[in-house]
């Protein structure tokens, strides 16, 4: 009865379990502290610094954020950039990956080399900025989407994933009269859902967390995505009455007092959507990355 054999309780197993428990606590603790500070009354946080289990709770920080039009606007901007950015990115990446994954065609190696060059040699920040500026994208949300259509690393892995699909499948479809679009959408994509889901999530996280593009291309605070606003809130020595946050009736001292809690509540709101999506797509991760990663 090999399958039912009991595992021995060895010292090694105990130490390993302890190690992973400690690792889990160390990993989870910062998130827990952020969550607790966001719902702890200010005086509790000022007194203790680190909050494990506050004796009382308040949702005032969340009330403040949800009545601040700028946080809501930034959340909406982040959603727009993430959704459109991923659709746009996939729309460019998948056909190109499919094209590059196909059998030999004239200039294929050269095209792959041309695609790979920017992966190793960037054009530099200023030329990139100038190109975006001359495309007329400065001060538009589109500047956070259009210049970032293709992530070359993702492209290569998706291309490799497509290459791993048995050729016989594609050829039999072509014998039945399917053209490249039909092959791509009816055969390749359904067979590569793990890869697409994985990289779709990676793209979403990239877009959701991207503050640097808005630093480069936006100066109108109303267009900031949540990541940029959050960065400003956390790193700025936020002053009382800071116009970057709308004050819905709190006095200067109350606002100043609540800044730590407001910062943490903003962090919670910023990480929550990604935290919610991850578990549902996690099952695709290993398969998605390994399928594309094994073949060159």
């Amino acid at each position: 009865m090999v399958g039912q054999r009991q595992k021995k309780l060895s010292l090694f197993n105990v130490l390993l379990t302890l190690f992973f428990i400690i690792l889990a606590v160390v990993t989870i603790f910062p998130f827990w502290n952020i969550l607790m500070v966001s719902i702890a009354p200010n005086e509790y946080y000022v007194k203790s610094g680190v909050v494990l289990f506050p004796t009382s709770f308040t949702f005032r920080n969340y009330e403040y954020i949800f009545t601040s039009s700028q946080v809501l606007l930034a959340t909406l901007n982040s959603i727009i950039v993430s959704v459109l950015g991923v659709i746009y990115g996939m729309a460019l990446t998948v056909p190109l990956a499919y094209g590059l994954s196909k059998g030999a065609f004239p200039g294929k190696k050269l095209l792959i080399t041309y695609v790979l060059i920017p992966m190793f040699f960037g054009g530099g920040l200023i030329p990139f900025y100038l190109v975006v500026k001359n495309l007329g994208l400065i001060e538009h949300l589109a500047a956070l989407i259009i210049p970032y259509g293709i992530n070359l690393f993702y492209l290569i892995v998706i291309k490799n994933s497509f290459t791993s699909i048995p050729k016989a499948l594609l050829e039999s479809a072509q014998i039945d009269g399917a053209n490249d679009f039909v092959v791509l959408f009816r055969i390749v994509l359904p067979l590569s859902m793990a890869t697409i889901a994985t990289f779709g999530l990676f793209m979403t996280v990239d877009k959701w967390n991207d503050w640097f593009s808005s630093l480069l291309f936006l100066t109108d605070g109303r267009m900031y995505p949540l990541a940029k606003l959050l960065r400003d809130i956390i790193y700025n020595n936020v002053n009382v009455g800071d116009p970057s946050l709308i004050n819905p009736g709190l006095s200067g001292e109350q606002l100043y007092a609540g800044m730590d809690g407001i910062k943490m509540a903003t962090v919670v709101i910023a990480i929550l959507p990604i935290l919610c999506v991850y578990p549902f797509l996690q099952r695709y991760f290993v398969k998605g990355v390994t399928v594309g990663g094994v073949k060159g």
Partner: peptide, 13 residues
């Protein structure tokens, strides 16, 4: 809008 945390970089660009 300039942010206290990164306005130097923004102005340089």
């Amino acid at each position: 809008a300039l942010s206290t945390v990164d306005y130097i970089e923004k102005l340089n660009i």
